[in-house]
């Protein structure tokens, strides 16, 4: 189960992008998702993410993420629908609850809940895409330029995590051979047996940490300024993807300032697309953000194009 979420190298176009380019692209997507509240614009962003996730061959993982998202979406829908009192089209008027006040459900609140659920799925999908296309080591290598100690701690922990999980399985096996049953008993007994496991892990891992420290000391850790070697090359594909994202961001800011991309939920539902400029804005934003997915498609099908970017 845990292997599903960890980055898997599939030799994809999106995985070959420079970490700074893909991180900036994902950050812009996240900002736009939190910026827009217009349902049509949110659906446009979701479309871009569907294209990118299919380019990253991540349908299965996305399914798991959507199931997790459903758990978050339910309270959002219920709370928004019951507590928002700005809507004029009242569908149901409920009782007066002491702390929460009078519960009402309006058409506007239901639409707002639906829009916010779409926003939630977009935000979750962005992180799903991050998991699929960004290797943790590449981000940490980027971070090591600015924050070497933090990057080192995170790199060490990322390296130690799988080995510690294996070590934990070994300890569990040894304990089971000695007669400890992790499956039977009440909650207290189960907790106790699992926590003993963590206790043993703590002891052995702290011993290991001293060896790691000795190794770091032997490699001159802390003796002076740290050098860093970067293997990542900035290629035309990175410029295209980042350029597209920056253009989309610029258009989105203009659309927010002029009001083309805004949408009024309360007191009555406004117009989804106010004029032709709003439509053009949306189309251009979606096109600019789809650059990585389009390049990925071309990269797979045309060797010449592949060589050029």
């Amino acid at each position: 189960m845990y292997e599903n979420f960890f980055y898997q190298d599939k030799g994809l176009f999106l995985q070959s992008l420079h970490p700074a380019a893909i991180l900036a692209y994902l950050c812009i997507l996240l900002v736009l998702a939190l910026l827009f509240s217009n349902p049509v614009y949110l659906v446009g962003l979701l479309l871009v993410l569907v294209l990118n996730i299919s380019a990253a061959q991540g349908g299965e993982v996305w399914g798991i993420y959507l199931k997790i998202g459903l758990g978050f979406a339910l309270p959002i829908i219920i709370i928004n629908a019951l507590l928002a009192r700005g809507g004029e089209t009242i569908i149901w008027a409920g009782p007066n609850i002491p702390v929460l006040g009078r519960l009402t459900i309006s058409l506007e609140a239901i639409c707002y809940s639906a829009a916010m659920s779409v926003r939630l799925f977009i935000v979750i999908s962005i992180f799903c895409l991050y998991n699929l296309v960004v290797h943790p080591d590449r981000v940490l290598a980027l971070l090591s330029r600015f924050a070497s100690k933090t990057a080192l701690i995170l790199s060490l922990a990322t390296r130690l995590f799988p080995s510690m999980v294996r070590q934990m399985a070994n300890i569990q096996e040894a304990m089971m051979i000695r007669g400890v049953d992790f499956q039977t008993g009440n909650l207290k007994q189960k907790l106790k047996s699992h926590a003993v496991l963590i206790n043993i892990l703590l002891l052995s891992s702290l011993e290991d940490s001293l060896e790691i420290a000795e190794a770091m000391h032997a490699r001159a850790f802390g003796s002076g300024p740290r050098s860093s070697y970067q293997r990542h090359v900035w290629r035309p594909r990175d410029s295209f993807c980042l350029g597209g994202a920056i253009l989309a961001f610029g258009l989105a800011v203009c659309a927010q300032i002029t009001g083309y991309s805004t949408f009024e939920f309360y007191p009555r539902l406004g117009c989804l697309l106010k004029n032709t400029m709003a439509v053009f804005n949306l189309v251009f934003i979606v096109v600019f953000l789809s650059v990585p997915a389009v390049l990925s498609w071309g990269w797979r099908r045309c060797p010449y194009f592949n060589a050029k970017i």
Partner: peptide
């Protein structure tokens, strides 16, 4: 701040133990 190699290694290990602790539970 100045951190020794032991400090860095112990902090990394403590963070990893806490992270790994999420799995059996």
């Amino acid at each position: 701040r100045k951190a020794s190699s032991r400090e860095v290694a112990v902090v990394a290990v403590l963070g990893t133990i806490a992270a790994a602790g999420r799995i059996p539970f």
